[in-house]
Computed example of a mutant assay.
Amino acid sequence: MADPQGTSKPINFVHRDEIRKAYVKVEKDSASVWPSKWGSLTEAYKEYERECVKLKEVLRAEPPSGSAAQPLTPTERNIQVAPAPPVPQTTQALIGWRLGHSNLQLEKYATVNHGRSSFLKELGWPSGACS
């Protein structure tokens, strides 16, 4: 991409190539040294995978006992879905169309009241203690 003001410096392709060669050399050196420094991590990971497979097989073979596992309850008992009101015909009426229906409002249980309190009053300090 050309500089619109023409103030860019000329590109030194030889210098860029030398930098790229240095990066490639460092990557190759790091790849050859990595197993001696960090190769133990691969064995630990393989051991972890073997243990996970064993645990999964044990869980598949032995289902949880009847006293600890609770039977699944049907969702029809817990969740009751009321029919939605008809969708408005215009986009302007679409904004906030569910708020007019009390059973579809977000605050289902009670309104949220955030009381205002003073930090100084909580500490029992006089109101002019901090300025």
Rank of each mutant, 00 (worst) to 15 (best):
N12M: 07
K21N: 09
A61D: 01
S32F: 09
E27P: 01
Q80E: 07
R60D: 01
E49R: 13
P85T: 07
R60V: 00
S117A: 14
S32D: 11
A44E: 09
L55G: 07
P4G: 01
K37H: 07
E62G: 00
R16F: 07
T90E: 09
T90H: 06
K9W: 06
H15K: 14
K56A: 04
V33M: 03
T42P: 00
A61L: 03
L123P: 01
T90S: 15
S117V: 09
P4D: 00
G6Q: 03
V58Q: 11
P74Q: 09
P86S: 12
P86L: 13
F13L: 15
F13W: 05
E76P: 00
N113M: 12
P4F: 01
L41K: 12
W34F: 04
L94M: 13
T73A: 15
Q5N: 14
E27Q: 08
V81F: 04
T91S: 10
E43Q: 12
Y48S: 02
T42F: 10
A31S: 11
S117E: 12
E27S: 07
L59E: 08
A31M: 10
N12F: 08
A84V: 12
Y48F: 04
E107W: 07
Y109W: 08
W34V: 00
N78A: 12
S8W: 08
E27W: 06
G39V: 04
P86D: 14
